Amino acid sequence: MLPSPISVVGALVGDYELLLHHAMTTLVEAGIGLCAGVSLGFVAAIAMDHFEVLYRALNPLIVLTQTVPTVAIAPLLVLWFGYGMLPKIVLIVISTFFPITVGLLGGMRSVDSDEIDLMRSMGASEFEILRHVKLPAALPQFFSGLKISAAYALVGAVIAEWLGGFSGLGVYMTRVRKAYAFDRMFAVIILISALSLVLMRGVEILRRLAIPWERVRRCER
């Protein structure tokens, strides 16, 4: 039942072209869903920070979306939207929306009120306060949420593909599972883990480029 490491590597090398084809489909779904989730989370966090009424109305609903497991939502999305790419993207958006929104909102609301008062006393507009004070303060938490969302995006795509589709790593896993090809199952698991690590590493590189003052503070310490 448990394949040897040699057979797993052999399955990974032997099905390299097929795995690459399925991986491209999963990465496209994860990329589109992640971009949409980040965009929606970014807009929602700014709106909730600016309008207190909107914050009180939407915050409980956003928290509520995370109490429903994605495995329970996925079959409904497939029934509603079919077996194409749309239900996968919707599931990824639902999975990635929460970490981005909560991270950005928490960072913007943690800004010292004296800094905001100082900016207003100097005649700064709300957009200038957002650009020069709130967003820089929220960037560390934003990238922490983005790292989590990047992993969620790939896993969410695979979960949605389990329930139906024409290509993708989840579809591949379903086929080899029915054939009891455990070496191929472990091979695709290793590939998914490797892709998740690459995405998280890419987010870390973006963080270093977007927040250069963190490196300066570390050097000073």
Rank of each mutant, 00 (worst) to 15 (best):
residue 1 M to K: 10
residue 3 P to R: 09
residue 8 V to D: 10
residue 9 V to I: 14
residue 9 V to N: 09
residue 16 Y to W: 14
residue 29 E to I: 01
residue 29 E to P: 00
residue 30 A to Y: 06
residue 39 S to H: 02
residue 41 G to D: 06
residue 48 M to I: 04
residue 52 E to I: 00
residue 57 A to G: 08
residue 57 A to W: 12
residue 63 V to W: 12
residue 66 Q to M: 10
residue 69 P to A: 03
residue 73 I to W: 05
residue 75 P to V: 07
residue 76 L to P: 08
residue 77 L to A: 01
residue 78 V to Y: 07
residue 80 W to E: 08
residue 82 G to I: 03
residue 82 G to F: 08
residue 82 G to E: 02
residue 86 L to Q: 11
residue 86 L to H: 03
residue 90 V to T: 05
residue 91 L to E: 04
residue 93 V to Y: 06
residue 95 S to N: 08
residue 95 S to H: 05
residue 97 F to V: 05
residue 103 G to V: 07
residue 104 L to A: 05
residue 110 S to K: 07
residue 112 D to K: 00
residue 114 D to Q: 10
residue 118 L to H: 10
residue 118 L to G: 11
residue 123 G to T: 09
residue 127 F to Y: 12
residue 134 K to I: 04
residue 139 L to R: 01
residue 143 F to R: 02
residue 144 S to A: 15
residue 145 G to P: 03
residue 148 I to F: 06
residue 159 I to D: 10
residue 160 A to S: 12
residue 164 G to A: 08
residue 170 G to L: 05
residue 171 V to G: 06
residue 177 R to I: 05
residue 177 R to Y: 13
residue 178 K to P: 00
residue 181 A to V: 06
residue 181 A to L: 10
residue 181 A to C: 04
residue 190 I to D: 11
residue 191 L to N: 01
residue 193 S to T: 13
residue 193 S to E: 10
residue 194 A to R: 07
residue 205 I to Q: 11
residue 208 R to Q: 14
residue 209 L to I: 12
residue 211 I to C: 00
residue 213 W to S: 13
residue 216 V to L: 14
residue 219 C to T: 14
residue 220 E to C: 00
